[in-house]
Design a binder for these strands. Structure first.
Lengths: 332, 332
DNA sequence: CTGTTAGCGCTTTCAC
DNA sequence: GTGAAAGCGCTAACAG
């Protein structure tokens, strides 16, 4: 079928081993033979079969990644960063999506592991016991991204969703907002949105604000955000600050306020989480938490590569931090 | 190291071939032996090594995909659909991004091919001669997505960017818009945005509208859309319709109009292309072209699978179509 | 129906 | 430094 290493070896009048050494940049080859072999490779148009290499070398050069959904900017950006880093280091990405289901995630983990990736990337920090077990068992470096945890499978690269939410809650209280509600996502609860919600609630608890019946659930979409504003209208006393677990909800809420003539932040302050591109573009611009997701993906790649290279495959925790972006959607 | 098929065979007192047959659901196994082998597999916790299988069977069960950027909703959604379909059929995705560079794309194609994917997914229809050559040479099914072409590498699954733009141009003229400008993207020109721009211009040409100096270029971002509005202000006579090659530009334009007190569509009609979620959420809602990107990705997967299964690996062209969404951002 | 035997294409000792 | 040979773990004939 296609030209193999044996063909090259034959033409070059060397052993297959030598060709392999040339291919892998081994030091133990004369410049002469190297040049000659290279020429033969060129002449034959030889292309190595990385599947065979993977089997023989027990390194496939692939890293597996699982995210909830690929279509959601959020995760796509992190993967963009990861892919970016990996491509720059000769590694390739194998990707799967689990739609926020830990059980399905475990299934994909199991399948991916059979393909012998050199490393693994997971979104979030909550996984089934089986997934954790399989991953640990496999012995390859694993990084969990987009949140932090005390009990990682191996390494973690993320930021403190809880702390960020709590902090911005305090800040906005300081800015004069007093009647607070939280909008959280209904359909795909996960460790990150849950941590954000809890962070908001913790801030309120710190400040002695009773949040009973002040937690609104809605779909994580623009329409869901609009719906949150509708639900808000039913609450008394009037709410003057809506803390949303995602920018998508917050932007949907702002747009609904525009339609209903609710002044933002005059009547209602709105705050999001993520700092999506639309957050700074919309009117009024959205106060939110900014995280460098692409950078986080890149950092995850770096951690994985370190583990791959390092003698002691020591795991690490990287906090990529966050920044509060105080904009016009909340009181100054 | 880990348990292999030989271990299972030994324990089960059968040949490795039989275990393999059980694994691959071959019909030629007694229910008895099958059950017994399955039990041994269970007992040993055996997990097949798909790398080895890939080498032996010359099928890896992987499909390679290259998109401009993973972080951009557009492409991420198509990949979501593709991944969705593939996962449902036991195939896995290997993904790379080329940042709108055909040269870099070719490089990734080359690398991916060495990993022996069973099929290939490419974004758009313009690729380097080398990439086309390598792909054709490889003999695996290839699908180009997100546009249509007369000269495909193999199969195409997309929609008529040019025709859609032309058609909406005609429609909006019919709605009374007369002074037209086109906003096109500056930094990452590609076959799709170029086709859209040309479609808009073709519509204007059809209608005898002189578009000299009526093509504005801007960055493909919300800020770029805002910038387009700024550039627009310099044109005379006053423009009453801005045709944008992407929703991102169009949304940026609408938001800038909000800031400048320009009535949309009263003073200026704005139309986009893509129908991103924000298009229907924003005020006024954006007139645009809607394409089912997730469905397109899924369709691409289907075509690939057909080629993989079919006797005659005949290539096909699938037009997934588009829909005009006439909303409040243009005259009724 | 099932065991045996070659490979798949490459890496990696191990002698020379 | 380089060749020869032994696998990596699995599939796919081929006998029986």
């Amino acid at each position: 079928m296609s030209v193999t290493i044996a063909d090259v070896a034959r033409l070059a009048n060397v052993g297959a081993g030598t060709v392999s050494r040339v291919l892998n940049g081994s030091k133990n080859v004369t410049d002469d033979t190297r040049a000659h072999v290279l020429a033969c490779i060129q002449q034959l148009g030889y292309r190595p079969n990385l599947v065979a290499r993977g089997l023989a070398a027990k390194r496939t050069g692939m890293v597996a990644a699982i995210i909830p959904t690929i279509g959601y900017t959020q995760h796509a950006e992190a993967i963009q960063g990861l892919s970016d880093f990996l491509q720059a280091h000769g590694l390739r990405l194998m990707i799967g999506h689990c739609g926020y289901s830990a059980a399905y995630e475990a299934q994909i983990v199991s399948d991916f592991l059979e393909r012998r990736p050199d490393a693994f990337y997971l979104t979030g920090t909550s996984h089934t016991a089986e997934a954790r077990h399989l991953l640990r068992e496999s012995g390859i470096p694993v990084v969990e991204a987009a949140n932090l945890t005390d009990d990682p499978i191996d390494s973690v690269v993320g930021y403190d969703n809880f702390g960020a939410a709590r902090q911005i809650g305090h800040l906005l209280h300081q800015r004069g907002h007093r009647h607070i509600a939280v909008a959280t996502s209904l359909h795909d609860p996960n460790d990150r949105t849950a941590a954000r919600r809890d962070g908001y609630l913790a801030a309120c608890a710190d400040l002695g604000i009773d949040m009973t019946d002040r937690v609104i659930t809605c779909i994580n979409s623009f329409a869901g955000g609009a719906d949150a504003v509708v639900q808000l209208a039913l609450l008394t006393p009037a709410i003057d600050l809506l803390l949303c677990v995602t920018d998508v909800i917050a932007v949907g809420a702002i747009l609904e306020c525009q339609r209903r003539g609710i002044a933002v932040p005059g009547q209602l302050g709105i705050c999001g989480f993520d700092d999506l591109p639309i957050a700074s573009a919309i009117n009024p611009a959205l106060t939110t938490i900014s995280v460098d997701r692409v950078g986080m993906g890149r950092a995850a790649g770096r951690v994985l590569l370190q583990c791959l290279g390092g003698e002691a495959a020591m795991s690490s925790t990287v906090d990529v931090g966050f920044q509060i972006r105080e904009r016009a959607s909340t009181r100054a």
